[in-house]
């Protein structure tokens, strides 16, 4: 019985998920094209979104094709996220391990932390202009915070008896860090990475809305100015697909790195 359930469960989940998506699409079609309940300027019909999709793929829109916009946005997210992780995780580990480092950094951190990503954008434009650097900077600032906090918490949650056990086996401080503290913090580090990645996408789209030459945020911004609902939906769907895709990739990495955990 149990084995049968385990085999059935994923396929049933996929079926339900597919059914939900199809139902929403069906309702959408009914509300717009079928029964014409909604003004097409409020919510465009599926056919209009499809036309917008073909337009941006063929001739392009807002200066480039959809793929070019998406790749540009992906590149910025990848850079900002990478810089945030490379700087944030080690800082969080250091603060978790050393009370002195925590005392030094924490006050600055507590002051900067409540500032929302959007509030940094004007400063980023003043400093770096409308180009890529400013956006990477803003993504870094916002994605940095969850990486630091979760790496910090991860270190503090490492079972002290494991550290004691490693020391009784003759482990040096470097060996304790490498073999006990960092692997022990890894599940929390990945929680932080997931939050950082979400923050990266949110911030990027916000930054591109304010000012950009390319990118999915730019598509949304121009489509808004053109009052072109079909293209707005294409832009939103593209952000959703890119965000979900990168989260899925991170999940693959997480499962591989944390292969020692019991299956959920």
């Amino acid at each position: 019985m149990a084995a049968g359930n385990a085999l059935l469960r994923p396929s049933r989940a996929v079926l339900v998920g597919t059914a939900t998506v199809l139902a929403v699409l069906g309702l959408w079609w009914l509300a717009t094209s079928g029964l014409r309940l909604l003004n097409p300027l409020r919510l465009p019909a599926p056919s209009e979104v499809w036309a917008a999709f073909q337009q941006i793929n063929g001739r392009g829109y807002a200066g480039a094709t959809l793929i070019e916009h998406a790749l540009h946005s992906l590149g910025l997210v990848a850079r900002g996220f990478a810089v945030a992780v490379i700087t944030g995780v080690p800082l969080g580990l250091l603060m978790g391990w050393s009370r002195r480092a925590e005392a030094l950094v924490n006050p600055i951190f507590l002051l900067l932390r409540p500032i929302p990503a959007l509030a940094w954008i004007p400063l980023a434009i003043v400093w770096f202009g409308l180009g890529d650097t400013g956006k990477v900077f803003v993504i870094w600032l916002t994605a940095f915070v969850p990486s630091v906090i979760n790496a910090f918490t991860g270190v503090r949650q490492v079972d002290t008896i494991l550290i004691a056990a490693a020391r009784t086996q003759g482990a040096s401080t470097a060996q304790v860090l490498r073999h006990v503290v960092i692997p022990g913090a890894m599940p929390m580090i990945f929680t932080g990475l997931r939050l950082s990645l979400q923050a990266s996408w949110t911030t990027l789209v916000a930054a591109e809305l304010v000012g950009a030459f390319f990118g999915l945020g730019r598509v949304l911004n121009i489509a808004g100015q053109d009052i072109y609902p079909g293209m707005i939906l294409v832009g939103m769907a593209a952000v959703a697909v890119c965000g979900a895709g990168t989260t899925w990739l991170l999940g693959l990495l997480e499962r591989r790195v944390l292969n020692w955990r019991p299956a959920v």
């Binding site: 494991l162 004691a164 056990a165 009784t168 086996q169 003759g170 692997p183 890894m186 020692w260």
Partner: peptide, 20 residues
């Protein structure tokens, strides 16, 4: 003056590294 490998310890909670 501190822990050392010439004095091995066995803990009640096993204290094995779950990732090894």
């Amino acid at each position: 003056v501190g822990p050392g490998p010439e004095r091995a310890v066995v803990f009640q909670q096993f204290a094995l590294m779950p990732w090894k």
